[in-house]
């Protein structure tokens, strides 16, 4: 009996992790359970089983993101993988070509897992069609960011004990947010009620087609919610194109103590980071240890990515050493 056979296998229908939309409730629960499992390892001095020993994981980032990349990297390293980081500078002139060319080049090197972030929606899916290894979506355009939604869900589940029946408000630039989309799909699949709040330029009424409730003011939108998820407002969305100014945005849609008072008393505050303090969230709220789960989200990020790596690679052929 070889060492690899000791590791568990799972009932998971997908070769890749491209989005939450294609996952069933059982599959999501599985990933959340495994995340809980790894969260315990991360908190103690016990090393997680080295299930990815001898495997190669490539972090292929077409967008700069130190936080997410580090989280993926740490997750892979803690499972024993060899990790290569590639950040491809995204020139606006030749952006299309580099994706598939890079994919084919990397594929020829036989990695086991490719983790990809790309500024265009659908790009990671396209990549997955051209390579033979496992592909994990680290965020594609405004489409999906599945590990973020999973880590948010673990965080919520650990604090609230459940997802079913919770009222979750997602606030801010929902329109352009892959975090929001993945969260909407996940929360709905798991039986939570989702509201989206923001000005109509960022949260158009047509969002209702996604099965969420749309609000254009914080007061009524936050009433009785269990979870307040703030989104990062990209700086280029300000300067008059979607909202007139930071200060106006903060006045009406930034989360401060006063607006938060319409939510439930035990409402949890979340943010995918990095935060624009004083734009979408007030520091007083963000740093409130009793209510803010923002640090825990970061912590769960590593555990969730370990769980995803585990579940996606559990059927890889056993490594032999000669």
């Amino acid at each position: 009996m070889t060492a690899a056979q000791k590791f568990p296998t799972f009932d998971f229908r997908h070769q890749h992790l491209l989005g939450i939309e294609e996952l069933s409730a059982d599959e999501i629960s599985l990933l959340l359970d495994r995340s809980d499992h790894y969260a315990e390892f991360n908190r103690t001095d016990v090393r997680a089983p080295q299930i990815l020993k001898g495997r190669t994981v490539i972090n292929l980032f077409f967008e700069n993101s130190t936080r997410t990349r580090t989280s993926f990297e740490l997750a892979a390293v803690r499972l024993g993988a060899d990790v290569i980081n590639m950040t491809v500078e995204h020139s606006s002139i030749k952006k299309g070509e580099s994706l598939l060319d890079t994919a084919l080049t990397l594929n020829a090197m036989h990695p086991n897992v490719l983790i990809c972030r790309h500024p265009e929606s659908g790009a990671v899916k396209l990549l997955s069609q051209k390579v033979r290894c496992v592909v994990m979506n680290g965020g594609d355009g405004a489409h999906e960011h599945p590990t973020q939604a999973l880590l948010d869900a673990v965080t919520i589940r650990r604090r609230k004990g459940r997802l079913q029946g919770l009222i979750v408000a997602i606030c801010g630039d929902v329109m352009h947010s892959r975090v929001a989309r993945s969260n909407i799909y996940l929360l709905q699949t798991m039986g939570a009620r989702v509201r989206v709040i923001g000005p109509p330029t960022l949260v158009p009424g047509t969002m209702e087609q996604l099965g969420v409730e749309v609000f254009h003011d914080m007061e009524s939108g936050l009433k009785d919610v269990d979870i307040v998820m703030m989104l990062r407002l990209q700086l280029e969305r300000m300067q008059g194109s979607y909202v007139p100014s930071e200060r106006e945005y903060f006045r009406y849609f930034g989360l401060d103590k006063q607006k938060l008072s319409s939510a439930r008393e035990d409402a949890l505050i979340m943010h995918p980071g990095p935060m624009n303090r004083g734009v979408e969230i007030d520091s007083e709220v963000a740093d409130d240890i009793g209510r803010s789960a923002i640090q825990e989200q970061v912590e769960m990020g590593v555990a969730v990515r370990m769980a995803c790596l585990e579940v996606l690679t559990c059927n890889l052929p056993i490594l032999e050493t000669r």
Binding site: S121, G122, G141, T206
Partner: peptide, 12 residues
């Protein structure tokens, strides 16, 4: 086309 499908796919 602007609408539900564009929203879901995250395309402008």
């Amino acid at each position: 086309n602007g609408g539900e499908i564009a929203l879901r796919l995250g395309l402008r």
